[in-house]
Structures are given as structure tokens and as C-alpha cells.
Design a protein around this nucleic acid. Sequence first.
RNA 1: GCGCCCGUAGCUCAGAUGGAUAGAGUGCCACCCUCCGAAGGUGGAAGUCGCACGUUCGAAUCGUGUCGGGCGCACCA
Length: 581
Amino acid sequence: MSFDPKSHLSELLRAALASAAPGQKSADIVIERPRDPSHGDFASNLALQLAREIKTNPRQIAERLVHELPVSGWVDKAEVAGAGFINFRLAASAKSQVVKEVLERGPDYGKHVPMSPGGKRPKVQVEFVSANPTGPLHVGHGRGAAYGASLACLLTYAGFDVTREFYVNDAGRQMDILAVSVWLRYLDLHGEKMPFPPNAYQGDYVKDMAEQIRAAHGERYVHPAAAVLACVPPPEPDADAHLDGLIAAGKDLLGEEWHYIHQHALSEQLADSREDLEQYGVHFDCWFSERSLFDTGMVARAVAELEKRGHIYIQDGAKWFRSTTFGDEKDRVVQRENGLHTYFASDIAYHANKFERGFDKVIDVWGADHHGYIPRVKGALQALGLPVERLDVSLVQFVSLFRNGAKAAMSTRAGEYVTLRQLREDVGNDACRFFYMLRKQDQALDFDLDLAKSQSNDNPVYYVQYAHARVCSVLQQWGGEVKSLAAADLAPLASVRELALCARLREFPDMIESAARDYAPHAVAFYLRDLAADFHAWYNAERLLVDDEAQKQARLALAVAVRRVISNGLHILGVAAPEHM
RNA sequence: GCGCCCGUAGCUCAGAUGGAUAGAGUGCCACCCUCCGAAGGUGGAAGUCGCACGUUCGAAUCGUGUCGGGCGCACCA
């Protein structure tokens, strides 16, 4: 049976309240941890809140409450302080109790169990990264990936049944541009020279794919440059019309074989992203294809449903969704004049599908530049009669790269970017994942490449990992059976540092809960840094392997508990907990 | 012009539901290994929480205004 100080103190206060102020016995009781340790281990502002209601000096109320407080073996002292706070000091035994709990629950310490009687965990989906498969992932995707993966794991700890999903944008113009880019490079390899459009994909990976196709299929897809350019408008003045003309020429000349090039480019890029992410420790349960929404008719059905509900009108030959009804700044096209559906239309179908899959919560992790997109998506869900409050969008702000003190350009199209892969090779997976979590997601991040690399030894991740490795090292020298420590008598843990460390361990589940509620995995990184600091301070102040056997057992038990919580926390962040460094 | 995010120590950033003397890291200064890993620890200096009003017992936190920075306002995805 574990001991929870907050609920215990709250019960005590509830009892005191019933006799001190019966009229207010159902008031909210908040127990918080004071910042300043001299204010005790826990505090309540109950008297301050009651003061307004019952028009009495808060200090008087607090005095009365303390007087009526039932006696408890866990509480050493309850006193009135400041304007009317009630400060509690716990008995040492109440504080060190947490060590036992950590050792018993092990990898599950910090995990919340479902409160409902049926024990069913709410289903939540986290969709993140969802980068266009038109080139390598870059450092911006790296942030979204680190954030989404950590958030998903955090939510698992918080008691949710989590599904991680990647939405594959395998339909639409961007993929056609990639396919035509590959084809043009391929033609170039066969001596069919023509200017490569500046708004096509420039990266070397495009040439690599062209080379692969030549190696596998020789001249099969070759057409003379003159034939390709025959009906294509010139790049000036409309570069997009030129590019679309090239795409049309490709589809026309290649017929069914256009599909091969398109498919090859798609599967190559997707495989590359998937491998990159797996190496980064980011795993997805589901890769959801945008094209499948068209193939199964779901996009058309979604639009038809909106139409049936009277939210669609036709103007200039296009079908518009009246999103202004739901607070959007203007109405949006769902089906163009040429009959093709917009990306927005497939996104409506996609979100409707998410809801059909029965998630209690759907979380979209988007780049901050998509924030203007939120009202129209929520509006569409509302128009379809779906429970829109189940959708949360978490915006991840931009990553700006700084190299040699200057902001580096980053455009996939231009091929000027630093890939996630390069970044990982430079600073390492652990430092990379942790570095991203050192900043709140809605805060713009300046990633100084030179600094990240040169300071990699000062990176906070090593500080945390070092605490873990130190415990491992001590245990090795001790040479005893770690499991036996679960039975250790914790009474010798009495110093200020030891009890502070215990309090820190006690915070872990609360931290998980609030971080999960706020979708804020960065809180885990900050917590770990604090925990490691408490541990290092204790380690330097007191020896663990002392002669006194009881003392040694208790201290080792505490050290093992610290190691366990560090490892659980690092696991959430996708960072290794090494035994040696 | 309209909308969203942000403004906290020299620098980089935390600060849930409003709470007590606003905190870390880094940089700077002074110290600590014959002793479990010094990738560590101890102490010090460093602040008008952009600014101004307002709400109240109490505001970095909530409201209004204002200044400064970022992003977005497609029949692209």
C-alpha cells in the first residue's frame, strides 16, 4: 500500500474543515508544494480561499483549522504562516517511503493506472511529422519527431492507450513535382538536355533516384527533349505553369509508365524517412496514406456529407465549404473548378476517419505555420456533427539553423538544408533528442550547429546520464544483490539532502500528470536535470558505501530509486540510460 | 490591415489551476579529489518579469491598450 501525502493531507484538512467550518465542508482543498523549503513540505491556501466566503481574517481561520486537525503519524507539524497559509512538515518516514514504492513498481513507477472501474484506458492518437515524402527529413522535422514521440510516450505513462500515426501525403501536386524532377534528371543522364526548372526539387537525392531507374530500366522512359518541351509554356513569366506543363508532358508521353516513376520516388523517399526515424528512436504504429482516402471514395463522401448538411455552395465553378459559419476568416474551396479535390478536402475526410476509428482524443502535431488551418478543420468537423472538442492541435514552432553565426537557409526545394541525419551524426541521437526537449514546443528554437557540436560535452543530457552511470558504478563496487535493497530499512535516511531527494522522487508522478495534461514533454527534461542535480549534490556530500550496514543499505536503496526514475524519465524522452560513459 | 505565438539575469530558457523573498543552465569570481567516476560539488555577484492602466487580500500569470520580434492570411500541400 503506497502512501500519497497530498491525498492524506487533504483528508486531514477535510476532517478539520467539517468541525471548524461546517458550512464550507465541500470547499476545494488544494495541497501544493511550496517553493521555499522553509515553508515546509506541503502547504494549503485553504484559509485564504475561505476568507472571502466567510468574511473572517484568514489567519484566524487557519488557526482554527490547525487546531481541529486530526493527529497523524505521517505529519510532524502543521503551522500557520504568512497571510494564512497552513504549512505541513512530514515525518521522515513519510518522505523516505517513496523509495520503497519506486523499487516495487520499477519501470511502472510514474505510470498512472486508469481510475475508471472498468479499467479501460482512453484511446488517444498522436499524429506527427507527416512530412511530404519529397525529400530527406530536416532539422525542423527532427523537432516535430522528438516532440511527438516524447509526447506519445508521456501520454502512455499518464494512462492513455496511444497510437502514433504518420500521415503520408502521397497524393497531389508536390509528389508530381518530385516525379517530374526525377524524370528530368533521368533524361539528362541519357543526354536529353533541357534546363532544370528552379522550382523543381534540386537535391542530389533526386539524381540518385534517376540513376537507380537508369540502372534498372535503361532507356525505357527516355523521350527526346524536343518532344517533352513541345507543348510546355516557357519558364518566363509563369514558372509554375512551366512546371505543370512538364508534368503534363510526362504523364502524356509516359502513359501508364509515369506511375512507375511516381511510385518509385514515393517509396524511396518514404523508406528513407522511415529508416531515418527508426534510427532516431521514433516509431509509428500506423502510416496512413492520403491517396487511400481518394481510392476508397472517402473524400467524395465527406464532401457529399457536407453538401447534404447544407454547408457547401458553388461559386466560379468550384465547391466551397462555408467555414465562416464556424469562425474561419473566409470560406474554403474543397473541389476546384477542374473537378479535383483540394488538400483541405482530403484532410476533412482524414479527420472524419480518425473520429470513426473511435479515439477519445486526437492530437495533431503541426508546424506553427499551419496555425491558420485550425479553424477550417475544426469547422468542418463541427459541420459534420463530430465532437470537435476531442481534437487538439499542438503547434511546434520553427527551428532556425545557425551556422558560423549566420542563419542558414532551409528549403527542401532548393536542396539547401541540414538533414536530420546529418544533425544526428554531428551531435548524436541522445543529445539531439534531449536538446529539442529543453525548450517548450511553442517557443521558436535557434539551433546553433557549431555550438551544439562544440558543446556536446556540456550538454545537459550527459549531466543526467552521468548520474545514472554513477549509481551503476557504485553498485558494481558494492557487488551485492540489488533486488535485496527493496527490503532495506529506510529509517537511516534522515539528512536534508536525502529527504530532498526523496521529495523529488515523489514529484515524478505529479510531473508526469501535469506534463501530459499540457502536452509538454519538456517538463520531463527539466525535471530530470533537477533530479540529477539533487543526486550529484548528495553524492558529493555523503559516501554511499559506508561501514554501517544499515546506513549503507538505506543509501543504496535511495540511489537505486534515483537510477530507476532517471531511467524511466529518459525512456520517455527516447534517450539512453547508459551504465558507463 | 486581420489572426496566432512570443517578450523573465550579460546569453539560452523554465515558471499548471493567480500565492509567501521570481528560478535553472551558461558565462564571470572564489573554493573542493591520498576517499564510491571532477562529464561532479560548494559559495558569490547578476532582475523595473517590454511598457502603461485595470481586476483583488495577492499578478510574471487574468483583462484592455501600447511598443518590439516571429509566423500565417491559395481553386499549394
